[in-house]
Amino acid sequence: MIEGALGIIDKMRIEVYPNDDYNESEAISTIFVQVNPDKYTLNHEVQFCEGQAMGASSQNLKFNRIGGEEVSFDFLFDSSGVIPPAKIESGKVEKLPLLDSLVDVLKPAISNPFEEADTVEEELKQFKDLLLGYNGETHETRYLHLLWGGFEMKCRLVSMQVEYSVFRRDGRPIRAKATCKFKGTQSYKEMQAEQNQQSPDVTHMKIVNQQDRFTLMAEQTYSQNKYYIDVAKANGLLSFRKLETGQKLMFPPIK
C-alpha cells in the first residue's frame, strides 16, 4: 500500500540460474529491468509431419509435437540520467529494498548539461553476459525465469538484437533497445510429471497383482492385443500364463 501511494512500480525481473533445477539457493543473479516493456509477443507452435500422396493436390498433416512457447520483449537501456538505471542483485531477489525504490522515484530527472553521459555499452555487456553466459562445466548457457505481474516463464535466451539510437559526441551509444526472444523450457522431471504416463511411446514398469493376466496387461498398455509376445521376449519369459504376484514386468515403447 505504501509503495502504491508513493508511485513505486513493480519492475519486471529476470532470475538467472546455472541449470534447469531452478534451485533458489543456486540463483546467480536477479535483473530488475530499467523500464517495464510496453508490450510483448507470445508465440505458440504446433508442428506437423506433412504427407502428400502422389498426384494429390492437398496434404495430410500428421501431428508431430507441440513446440515450446516463445516470447519476445524489448528492453530499454538509457544512460542519459533521465530515468533510473537497471538493477542487478546477487542471488534470488523478489523485490528491491524500499529505500532503493524510493531513491529511484525521488531522483530528479535532470542531468548536468556540462557532464558527458555514460555509455550503455558496459550495462549491455553485463546484461548479455548474464543471459548468454556459458557454463564451461555443463557446456550450457544460462537458464532464466521471467517474472512480471501475472506473467511467468522458465526459459532460455534464443536471440538478442540490439538497436542503438542516441549517441555521445564521440559516437558511443547512450541509448539502446535490446529485442530478446526466449523459448520456454522444462526439466526432465517436470516433463515426466506432465506427460501422459499411459502413452505406448514410453517404457512402463508394472507389478503383477494376483488377478492380472499377461495378455490383458499388454492390451491395456498398447490399446492392441498383438504385442504380448514381444513383451514376453523383452522380459525373458518362457511362459506368460503363470505369473508370480509381485513380479515386475517391463513394457517397452512401440517402435
Rank of each mutant, 00 (worst) to 15 (best):
S79T: 08
D129Q: 09
P173N: 03
F114R: 09
F114I: 02
L157C: 15
K107A: 13
A117W: 00
K87F: 10
A193Y: 03
T179F: 00
I88L: 03
A86S: 15
V166K: 15
R168I: 01
E89P: 00
H139A: 13
A178M: 05
E116A: 12
P85A: 14
L130Y: 03
D170R: 02
S80A: 06
G91I: 14
S187T: 10
P85G: 08
G81Q: 06
V93H: 03
N112Q: 15
L146V: 10
R156F: 03
V93T: 09
I174K: 02
A193R: 09
A109C: 09
K95S: 10
D170P: 01
G91P: 10
T119N: 10
P85Q: 12
A178N: 01
P113C: 12
I88N: 00
D170A: 01
T138A: 12
H139Q: 14
V103P: 01
D170K: 03
F151M: 14
A178R: 04
E116S: 08
E116L: 09
T119M: 06
M191S: 07
R169V: 05
Q186P: 05
Q186W: 12
T179N: 11
I110C: 08
R168W: 04
P97H: 14
K107T: 15
M160Q: 09
G133A: 07
Y134I: 09
K125P: 02
A178V: 04
F151T: 12
V120E: 00
G150K: 14
M153I: 11
A117Q: 04
G171P: 06
D129C: 04
S80Q: 02
C180P: 05
H139V: 07
L131K: 00
D118K: 12
I83K: 04
D170H: 06
S111P: 02
K189G: 07
F114A: 11
P84V: 10
L124I: 06
P113H: 13
A117M: 06
P85K: 09
M160Y: 00
F114C: 06
S165V: 11
P85L: 10
C180A: 14
E163M: 06
L96W: 06
E116P: 00
P173R: 02
V120T: 01
G149I: 10
S159K: 14
A86Q: 15
M160F: 03
G81S: 10
I83C: 03
L102I: 15
K125S: 11
S79V: 00
E190L: 07
V93K: 05
Q126R: 13
G149A: 13
A176T: 05
E152I: 07
V103L: 15
E115W: 13
R142T: 05
L124A: 00
R169M: 07
C180I: 07
M160N: 10
T185E: 14
V166T: 12
C180G: 04
I88M: 08
K107V: 03
Q126M: 09
S187E: 06
I110G: 02
L124G: 02
K92D: 07
I174H: 03
I83V: 15
E123T: 04
V82C: 08
F167N: 05
P108S: 08
C155I: 00
V103M: 14
Y134M: 10
D118Q: 12
S90D: 14
R156I: 11
Y143E: 01
Y188P: 01
R168V: 02
V82Y: 13
L146F: 07
